[in-house]
């Protein structure tokens, strides 16, 4: 099958890639663009380890063809940290032990990043509901929720200070 020429903006940079129509977005990100942050967990759109930000929305990149993302703007976990180091969410996950094995963490943080844009001051229940598409088999979620709530607080007070 003839490959398609796809153009996207990934983590702020324009990229070109040739991909078969059947190539899943997660495979193109990982194998062609070398972005191995988004993980392949279940590959059936349940676990959320492959979560990326696509045109300002969280999506599961295992259940999408790369061709569907032609022209899209994408942020992966690699694009979350700023020039000054870790994103507040990343340091908050570290501080609150929001991970154990770490496999789900890129998806968790990429999803939480968008959740806090949509709802900067969520309740615990809203965090749990908003994170329902991301599974973690280690932590029992307590510390993930704590980390996100703490990050929300920090981001709010940072904004207030500015």
């Amino acid at each position: 099958m003839k490959k398609l020429h796809l153009e996207m903006t990934v983590n702020g940079k324009p990229v070109d890639v040739l991909a078969e129509p059947r190539a899943l977005l997660i495979h193109v990100l990982r194998e062609d663009l070398g972005l191995t942050g988004p993980h392949i967990g279940c590959e059936t759109s349940h676990c959320g380890a492959c979560t990326i930000d696509l045109n300002g929305k969280s999506v599961k990149s295992c259940t999408m063809f790369a061709a569907q993302a032609n022209g899209a703007t994408i942020t992966t976990i690699e694009g979350i940290a700023g020039p000054d180091g870790m994103h507040v969410l990343q340091s908050s996950f570290r501080e609150h032990h929001g991970l154990q094995c770490g496999y789900c963490t890129p998806g968790m943080i990429t999803r939480a990043y968008r959740l806090l844009q949509e709802n900067p001051n969520p309740t615990e229940e809203e965090v749990r509901f908003g994170m329902a598409g991301n599974l973690c088999r280690c932590t029992g979620y307590q510390n993930i929720v704590k980390a996100i709530l703490h990050a929300a607080n920090e981001m709010q007070s940072k904004e207030a200070a500015e």
Binding site: G48, T51, S58, V59, R111, G130, G133
Partner: peptide
Amino acid sequence: IADPQVRNL
């Protein structure tokens, strides 16, 4: 229905 990521697509 499903979860936030799935509802986005």
